[in-house]
Structures are given as structure tokens and as C-alpha cells.
Simulated assay, not measured.
Amino acid sequence: MTDLARLWDTAWGLLEAALSDRAAPARLPVLATAGLEGGASARVVVLRGADRAARRLEIHADAASLKAAELARDPAATLLVWDPARQMQLRLQVRVGLLAGDPGRWQAVPELARAAYGGTPPPGTPLADPADWHADPVITRHLALICDLQALEILHLEAQPHRRALFRAETGWQGGWIAP
């Protein structure tokens, strides 16, 4: 792909497809945050929202999770998406706002998935046996992570030579080519 506008559209198309297609590559991005004890922390999350016009993405978390504590301390994060069919990587630098207990968002969470937001003991607590954890879904533990896009880097490996582009908020989203 040699057209920056088309590459931008392709990237957003991947993100938007994840909202309706459970098999879409962007449905399960990796979220990387600054760890509480130094280093980085990364985990797979579910993409719950993608708003191209607002340059905003949304994922959800348990308010008692380590990722919630990490983002409360440092809201800078990166989402990473890999599309094997297109041989395309998206690296999205975001600033994350935390929105707890929103009734509209809670209603949109499927009943079965609500178990992820609440539970005893809280996420990350050591257990003697997996049966020692008990689901207790509660709206106050549901946290929307509102991810405002700061930069979008696209690496396209299918193209020969490989192509890499960077779009940044500070430049009004005017993309530019960078060395792969």
C-alpha cells in the first residue's frame, strides 16, 4: 500500500470490524502499560469500542485489577494489533481515562461476561485452588478504559519493500512514511 490515506482507512477498518466480528484480528489487542514495580506489563484485552471521528477506542477492566492501578498512576499505554492475513501490525499509543460504574456501559456487557467485573478475591490474588475464586459481578467494579489515540503506527510486511507509516495527533493526523 503506497497511499497514506488508504492505509489509515485500512487500519480503522480493522479496528471497526472487531466490534461486530468475533474472529476479527483487532478484537483481541495486547494492552501494554507501565508496570507498578518498573518495567512494562502487557495483556490481551477485548476491544469494546472504536470511534474513528473521535480517535477513541474503548476496552473494559475490573476496577480492582493491576491494569487499573497501573493506568491510574500513568495513563500512557499502547495497544498492539496483528492481522496475519494482511501481514499488518498496528501500534496505537493512547492516553487512558478511567470511567467506573457507568450504567449504560454495564447494561451493554453480556450477562455471561459480567462475571469478569467483580469477584472474590480480587484479580491477581494467589489461590490454593481455582475453585477458591467466586464470581460476584457488580457495576462498581466495571471500569471502561477510554483510550484517546495519540499516535498510530502501521507496519505493513506484505508490501515489498515493507512499509511503515506514522500518524500523530500533534501533526493533525497527517501521516508520514518512516523506515521499517
Rank of each mutant, 00 (worst) to 15 (best):
I146V: 12
A85V: 12
V138T: 09
Q89M: 01
R52L: 04
A50N: 01
T33S: 15
A72G: 15
A61S: 05
G35L: 13
L79V: 03
A131K: 05
P126F: 11
R56P: 05
P121S: 07
D129T: 11
I59V: 14
A128N: 15
A26R: 00
V96H: 06
A24D: 04
R52S: 04
K67S: 03
V138S: 04
A42S: 11
Q93I: 04
G38I: 00
P75H: 02
W133N: 04
R22H: 11
A113T: 05
W82H: 13
M88S: 00
H134A: 12
D102N: 06
A128C: 14
D62N: 11
A128W: 10
R141K: 12
E58Y: 05
V94G: 13
G35F: 08
G38L: 11
T140R: 13
T120R: 05
A34G: 13
G97A: 14
P130Q: 09
L143F: 08
D83I: 05
A53V: 13
T120H: 11
D148P: 02
A32Y: 03
T78G: 08
G101R: 06
L90C: 00
L31N: 03
R141C: 14
R27Q: 15
A42C: 15
V138F: 06
L90K: 00
R73I: 07
D62E: 05
D148L: 06
R114W: 08
L31T: 00
A18L: 15
M88Q: 03
I139N: 09
A77V: 06
L143C: 09
Y117D: 03
W106S: 06
A113L: 10
E58K: 03
G35P: 00
A17M: 02
S41K: 10
E37M: 15
A18G: 09
A40S: 06
T125A: 05
T120L: 14
E58F: 02
A24E: 13
L98D: 06
E70N: 07
A26N: 09
R43I: 03
Q93C: 12
Y117A: 04
H142W: 07
G35H: 01
A17P: 00
W82G: 08
D136N: 12
A115G: 12
P84F: 10
